[in-house]
Design a protein around this nucleic acid. Structure first.
Ligand code: MN
Ligand code: MN
Ligand code: ZN
Ligand code: ZN
Lengths: 133, 133
DNA sequence: TATCAAATTTAGAATTATTCTAAAAACCAT
DNA sequence: ATGGTTTTTAGAATAATTCTAAATTTGATA
């Protein structure tokens, strides 16, 4: 068993996700040490290229589970398609409209300060800055 | 003819949109002097309540035309539904996730500075700050 | 290792938002 | 009023996502 496989199994277990075959396979595609932003279609294509046999429903199930478990972050930049981000640290995004592609902006490259008072009883879930270019 | 109606006709004409009946009706719902964020469904409901007879396709056509003409600004905060914003001045948003509702944040209530360098040949189309609460 | 209940995966149907089509209606310059 | 052009519309088409329920996999236990 490759070390990488072992790491992925533990990553899933740590997040209370049973490390089944397709979950490990999809996690293997996503968590390869490189930050990425993927659509469901991207994952289906990636899986097909690696001869991983799965279904559309499973890709949806798995990405949604990973997002709920905090292994992925959902990024909404256009209505219609969802993107999932493997970079979990605080950061912002360029969105290349013509290419329908996201690129990270390190949090230190944008200064967001002086947040307004929140309405009663609310807490911030996220602060997202998207620069469309 | 009410003054308000006249204003709306001129607003459309100024933006090179022929002031047809349904366009004037939908513009009347939207441009009443109060900033608002509406979904297509909201507009259909508003129209129905005012006994404005129209079709789903026309609401889509009209909102898309208004957005292209710069009378509305499209706001993307969740995959699935599009919001249209009548507030055209620079500002940001709270998004109330549980209520699926937007609220404006005046631009002076958030300080966004030190934007990063843009990739070659790109220009900023918009800078959107969304605070999910 | 064999058994089996629970969890997962899956194909295809269903749902939802949006766009497309092409026929009918409205518009407006003459 | 006429008639070419634009708009409106109902319903079909498309596309992303979720649902359903049957088949498969998983992993604890015997
Ligand atoms: Mn693709
Ligand atoms: Mn509604
Ligand atoms: Zn990112
Ligand atoms: Zn707004």
């Amino acid at each position: 068993m490759k070390n990488e496989t072992h790491d992925i199994t533990h990553l899933l277990v740590k997040h209370d996700i049973r490390p089944t075959k397709i979950r490990r396979a999809i996690a293997g595609l996503l968590f390869d040490g490189h930050d990425k932003h993927v659509s469901v279609d991207d994952v289906i294509d990636l899986a097909r290229r690696q001869k991983i046999r799965t279904s559309v429903a499973s890709v949806y199930n798995t990405l949604n589970q990973f997002a709920s478990a905090g292994l992925l972050r959902r990024v909404t930049v256009e209505q219609g398609r969802a993107f999932f981000d493997t970079n979990l640290s605080a950061h912002h995004h360029f969105y290349f409209e013509d290419e329908e592609r996201l690129e990270d902006i390190p949090t230190e490259d944008i200064n967001v300060s002086g947040l307004p008072e929140l309405p009663q009883g609310r807490t911030i879930k996220s602060v997202d800055v998207t620069i469309r270019i």
